[in-house]
Computed example of a mutant assay.
Amino acid sequence: MDGMSTQHRPRVGRPPHHTGPEELVQTAAMARRFYLEGRSKTEIAEEFGISRFKVARMLETALHNGLIRLEVRLPAELDAERSDALRSRYDLRHCVVFTSAQQDPGGAVLATQRLGSVAAALLAEIVTDSDVLGLVWGPEIEAVGRELTVLARCRVVQLCGVTPLRPVDNNAVEAVRRAASIARGPVYPIHAPLLLPDGATARTLRRQPGIAEAVGQFQHLTKALVTVGAWEPGLSTIYDALGADEREQYRSRGTCAEVVGQLLDADGRPVAPELTERIIAIGFDELRRVPDVILLADGAERAAATSAALRTGLFNGIVTNTAVAEHLLR
């Protein structure tokens, strides 16, 4: 033994790492190349004569120490955090949440306008020349039609009739025609009510040439925009079309939502199969074959109905506002 105790021996090895000015300016240069110029870590490593693993480590350390700060900026009306949370929670392909203040005067109208604007921008982003786009009837779709300015060349198909209170609704057909006009493609409108008095009348109308042509396009759909109604006055076309006795009958069965004329309970199960014979609309089995079905929903009063709609498994996308998103994430 050399007489020196182990605890008093000097430590052998590398001195503590000290980040000096040269490493700082090198890291800053690497950050500019990687984050601003789009250079790969391998390219940066070759330029500076180090391994790409060291480049990765230096960039990671710089982020941790605050030398590099990343900032993600979105337009103020888009809620990135809730959009990502909702996409993950419901395993969605398309998910956009926008902010809205419905407590303000005119808030509900403004929310629908904003929904139309965001949905129109989403269509401009994801629709291609090879798509066949389906649109249901509803105020939200009318808002989308007003906001559309760009759309790829595609076929546009109306997916359902309109409220019986307005048998041939010019606004509903106009929204579909406007989309087709912007897309410079063929249009397939449905000039008929959504709900008929009985199944025989509905079957007769479905055989009419124009309607039959539109229904024949359902099998070719690749993208569809669908809205959801809540089982309350003014929030569902079917609710408003029925008499008081029928409304309460379906409410007693647990109806809380309506999607393309189908009534759903809170778990997304159909509760009124007999109504199917009386409506002119795309069916759930046909919707399930469409690759992209996007739900449009705005307003806290539709939050529970939106939850029911998502439980059907029909949708892989949603455009909604913060009030609905918060309900869905709870």
Rank of each mutant, 00 (worst) to 15 (best):
R178G: 00
P197Y: 04
G161I: 08
R184W: 01
L194W: 09
A152S: 09
V176K: 02
V144I: 03
T163I: 11
V162L: 02
P193N: 08
V168K: 04
E174W: 14
A179G: 07
I190G: 00
G145Y: 14
A152W: 11
R184H: 08
N171T: 08
P197G: 07
T149K: 10
T149S: 12
S181E: 05
R155Q: 12
V144D: 13
V162C: 13
V144M: 01
V156K: 08
E147W: 08
R155Y: 07
V150H: 15
P197N: 01
L195V: 11
E147T: 11
V187W: 05
D198C: 06
V168N: 15
S181K: 06
L165W: 13
A175V: 08
A175C: 09
R177C: 04
R177M: 10
N171G: 05
Y188T: 12
H191A: 08
P167N: 00
G185A: 08
P189E: 05
A179T: 06
P193W: 12
A152H: 14
P189L: 04
R177P: 01
R177Y: 07
Y188E: 10
E174V: 09
C154N: 11
N170L: 13
L195N: 03
I182R: 07
E174S: 05
N171Y: 15
R153G: 14
V176E: 02
A172I: 04
C154R: 14
V144R: 01
G199C: 05
V157M: 11
L196R: 03
V156G: 01
A152Y: 14
P186I: 05
S181C: 06
I190F: 06
Q158Y: 12
V173M: 12
E174G: 04
G185T: 07
H191Y: 14
G145V: 05
A183F: 00
L148V: 11
L159N: 11
R184Y: 05
C160T: 14
E174L: 13
R178E: 02
A183C: 05
P164F: 06
P193M: 10
E174Y: 15
V157H: 13
P193A: 04
Y188K: 08
V168F: 15
V157P: 10
P164V: 09
P167E: 01
P189F: 08
L194S: 02
C154T: 15
I182V: 15
P167H: 10
P193R: 14
V144A: 09
D198Q: 03
R166D: 09
R166K: 14
T163D: 10
A172D: 11
I182S: 02
V156C: 10
S181D: 12
P189W: 11
L165N: 10
R166T: 13
